[in-house]
Design a protein around this nucleic acid. Structure first.
Lengths: 197, 197
DNA sequence: CGATATACATACTGGTCGGTATGTTTCTGC
DNA sequence: GCAGAAACATACCGACCAGTATGTATATCG
């Protein structure tokens, strides 16, 4: 097997196990079994369980965020309200029941680890700040284009949006019910509409 | 020591340890050390670590929810928008930096345990449903009193409110910054205002 | 072709975990 | 006052955990 492949297989397996059990309760043995390799391989590529977790954040989860929320909002041309609604709808569509039961990977890790590990907190913080900044810039741009109400504070609104998104995922995760996500998402869509001119 | 006292001391210690580390990573030894008793006492009152966790949910955390959100909203006389804003402000005031770093105990447990333990999920679900129902009833009552806009759906709005609250707590927890909570809370207050007539 | 590094596999270790078995003391009821 | 139960304390157990030490095959490079 190619070296890079083994590393990626390990990262994928770790991502799924961590998503299912949380980082602290994720078993290295389970990850290795899922990846089909042994401990020698793991500790060849990662110095410790913690570093493996960092890599999952920086490489796997970071990619998800980029694909789903950052890149679609990057273009400075269109209407951010529509863009945000599209992101939300697309994100909602691609979530199956298992995804809903397991919740948002970024939020899960942030909630579990940020109080007890600085390394995790710094990394999740960077990602949230990127997310917030991207939405904030899009809103600001929308204001200049006259598509977003001038009165709103882009930063504050971005924070409110992300908080609400994560809250919706949390509620749906606990209810284990996609209907909850959809109902909650409707509330977000209404709120997003209220931002437009 | 009185029997009931010992049980309560154990519950309190367990609540704090679980709040700090999460349920799965909460160490019974740490709980016992904090409580100043030994394993004999613990297993005299609780059949297992899991039952201890259930009791923390049903007795300690449930009390917090009741005191902070259910009882203040129980009276069917006043303006629910004002009541909700008061709850939010009061809740925000009594949170110190440590509380913010550790996040909402109910949300923490729900996020960690609901995907992997039915018993936890059922119990957190009951509490969330109570919370939602209380807010929904208050909003409905407010509509009858002409203090809340007739067009809104009380249930959907209650879900959106709770999701947003939990989202705000999550964002502040990860940022480890009360300013984030306050800024996010401002967004919630604005939204609550938009519900009134 | 030989040497060295890379890329793993295997076997093992100390420590911590939840849980249990067995005291020991205190309180309660007759 | 004595028997039994309640309320704990102490000592111990097997399981699992992250991490390590060592072995081995393969690829790379001079």
């Amino acid at each position: 097997m190619q070296p890079d492949t083994t590393r990626q297989v390990l990262l994928d397996a770790a991502f799924h196990e961590i998503h299912r059990k949380g980082f602290q309760s994720a078993s290295l043995t389970a990850i290795l079994h899922k990846a089909g390799v042994t401990k020698g391989a793991l500790y060849h590529y990662f110095g410790s369980k913690r570093e493996l977790g960092y890599a999952v954040l920086e490489e796997v989860i970071s990619d998800h965020l980029r694909t789903l929320w950052l890149e679609p909002l990057a273009g400075a041309t269109a209407d951010p309200v529509t863009q945000l609604k599209d992101c939300l709808i697309k994100a909602g569509e691609q979530l199956n029941d298992k995804d809903i039961r397991l919740g948002c990977p970024l939020n899960n890790l942030a909630q579990e680890m940020s109080p007890i590990d600085q390394g995790f907190r710094e990394r999740t913080d960077v990602m949230y700040k990127l997310w917030l900044q991207t939405i904030s810039s899009a809103l600001q741009n929308g204001q200049q284009l006259g598509r977003v109400r001038k009165e709103i504070d882009p930063e504050e609104t971005a924070l409110f949006i992300v908080a609400t998104l994560e809250g919706c995922m949390s509620m749906a995760k606990n209810a284990q019910d996609k209907a909850v996500l959809l109902q909650c998402g409707k509330g977000v869509l209404n709120y997003l509409d209220s931002l437009g001119t």
